[in-house]
Amino acid sequence: MTITPVKTLVASAKEQIETLSQEDAEAQVAAGVSQFVDIRDIRELKREGGIPGAIHAPRGMLEFWVDPASPYHKPEFNTDKKLVLFCASAWRSALAVKTLQDMGFENIAEMEGGFGAWKKRGAMIEEQKKEAK
């Protein structure tokens, strides 16, 4: 059996999605036109902390939470703001943004470098994260 390596899937997704620089993403969120969505696992969130104001939507539930027709839909995703997804290193977020685009979402992007780059540049981190309810 031949499989497509995940690295290839990520590279392909990145060619088809919008990737915002850390600074642009932060500025858009601060201006109120975008909303951070943290798709990391809850264990990563508890261990590493998160970005203040980000909604936590674990990767495994993301499509279900954003789809208004899903019984699992979360109202936080009924927004005109651009959703800016991030994970630890911008691999899962690239695949997630591509999937949401395939679902029909247009106002969506990922943040370059993910939370790892956010932390490395010394940007604000909070210990407790709010999860979509």
Rank of each mutant, 00 (worst) to 15 (best):
P75T: 06
P75C: 00
E76V: 07
E76R: 04
E76N: 04
F77Y: 04
F77I: 02
N78C: 04
N78H: 06
T79A: 14
T79E: 11
D80V: 05
D80F: 03
D80L: 01
D80G: 05
K81R: 15
K82C: 14
K82W: 02
K82F: 01
K82T: 13
L83V: 05
L83I: 14
L83W: 12
V84R: 07
V84E: 05
V84D: 13
V84N: 05
V84Y: 14
L85H: 07
L85C: 13
L85S: 06
F86K: 01
C87P: 10
C87S: 12
C87Y: 10
C87R: 01
C87A: 14
C87K: 05
C87N: 10
A88K: 11
S89W: 02
A90C: 13
A90Y: 06
W91F: 07
W91K: 12
R92M: 10
R92E: 11
R92P: 08
R92H: 15
S93H: 08
S93M: 13
S93I: 01
S93L: 06
A94Y: 06
A94M: 05
L95K: 03
L95E: 09
A96Y: 01
A96G: 10
V97A: 13
V97E: 11
V97K: 06
K98N: 11
K98H: 11
T99D: 14
T99M: 09
T99E: 14
L100R: 06
L100W: 00
L100K: 04
Q101H: 08
Q101P: 02
Q101G: 10
D102H: 00
D102C: 09
M103W: 04
M103N: 04
M103Q: 06
M103L: 04
G104K: 04
F105M: 15
F105C: 06
F105H: 14
F105Q: 12
F105K: 15
E106M: 09
E106R: 02
N107M: 10
N107Q: 15
N107P: 07
I108Y: 03
I108F: 04
I108C: 13
I108G: 08
I108H: 06
I108R: 02
A109T: 03
A109R: 05
E110Y: 01
E110C: 05
E110S: 06
E110K: 02
M111W: 12
M111F: 11
E112P: 01
E112G: 03
G113F: 02
G113I: 04
G113M: 03
G113R: 03
G113A: 00
G114E: 05
G114V: 11
F115H: 04
G116A: 12
G116Q: 08
G116S: 07
A117V: 09
A117D: 07
W118D: 07
W118A: 10
W118G: 04
W118V: 00
W118K: 08
K119P: 01
K119Q: 12
K120V: 13
K120E: 09
K120R: 12
K120W: 06
K120S: 13
K120G: 01
K120M: 14
R121A: 12
R121K: 15
G122S: 12
G122L: 00
G122I: 00
G122N: 05
G122E: 02
A123R: 15
